Simulated scan of single mutants.
Amino acid sequence: MGKLYMVPTPIGNLKDMTFRAVEVLKGVDLILAEDTRTSGKLLKHFEVGTQMHSHHMHNEHKTTEGIVKRIKAGENIALISDAGTPAISDPGFLLTRACVEAGIEVDCLPGATAFVPALVNSALPNDRFIFEGFLPIKKGRHTRLQAISEEQRTVIFYESPHKLLKTLAQLIEYVGEDRPVSVSRELSKLHEETIRGSVKEVLQHYTERPPKGELVIVLGGKK
């Protein structure tokens, strides 16, 4: 029986790729990639010639069973996402669960993920925190924001640049304008920045300077 490897990839800076990750990707029989075009550039950079198949949120329900059969037949397969650690706000959970249920060993390598450096950079308490991923767009958003407003631990979630202003404005509505918040963008990239302050101050900053790139919001807990 083979093994499933969950392999983190850089969230920006290619130097964050680990030696072990490259070694695993070169040694497996197949690489499953969220976007083969994006991952193709990464694999070419590290001279990885392993065959690659597409595995993403739109086809994972259909492909998982076949992948499990291939691993049970003896193949070693690695899963990568476009950036960061698979299954963290990316495809991977369904396949991991299916492999565990089938008695297949799953090996998740340590590596890049956006919310950890954002949390540390925020200077907000990090001894206890929760990670919310992306907030619901419509259904369930009110309920989630209401729960966040009462949360005493630091809260971390991802947001896209074109929705940031709306989300910060909603946070003012639910948690108040004075709650401390930190927004990190373009982590590990050339234009990386972290803006800290009250929700009102950070909203004002990005109202004047529309954000670009991937964003992580870190919100202080209720006192």
Rank of each mutant, 00 (worst) to 15 (best):
G213I: 03
A102C: 08
F19D: 08
V22N: 01
V183I: 14
Y158V: 13
K166W: 09
T194A: 14
L171V: 00
K62I: 01
R97F: 05
S81C: 05
D127K: 14
A123G: 06
E105D: 14
V183T: 03
A73K: 15
G111W: 11
T9D: 06
K163V: 12
P136C: 13
T64F: 10
A169S: 15
G221W: 10
K163W: 08
G221T: 11
D90T: 06
M1G: 15
K41V: 05
L124N: 01
G197W: 08
T167N: 02
G2W: 10
T207M: 10
G66K: 01
L165I: 15
T38M: 01
L79W: 11
I195S: 06
G2E: 11
A118S: 15
A123H: 09
H61R: 14
V28W: 04
G221A: 11
V183E: 07
L124M: 01
V106S: 02
V24F: 11
V106D: 13
H162P: 01
Y5L: 10
A73L: 11
G92H: 03
I172K: 15
G197C: 09
I217Q: 02
L145P: 03
T143D: 15
H142T: 08
T38W: 00
K212Q: 14
P10G: 02
T113D: 02
G92F: 03
K62R: 14
H56P: 07
S188W: 12
E47K: 14
S81V: 03
D90R: 03
G140S: 06
K41C: 00
E159G: 08
R209D: 12
T96W: 09
I67Q: 05
P136I: 13
R185I: 06
Q51N: 13
K200Y: 06
E214T: 07
P136Q: 13
D107S: 14
F115M: 11
V48E: 09
M52K: 05
A73E: 15
R141S: 03
L30S: 04
F46M: 03
D90E: 10
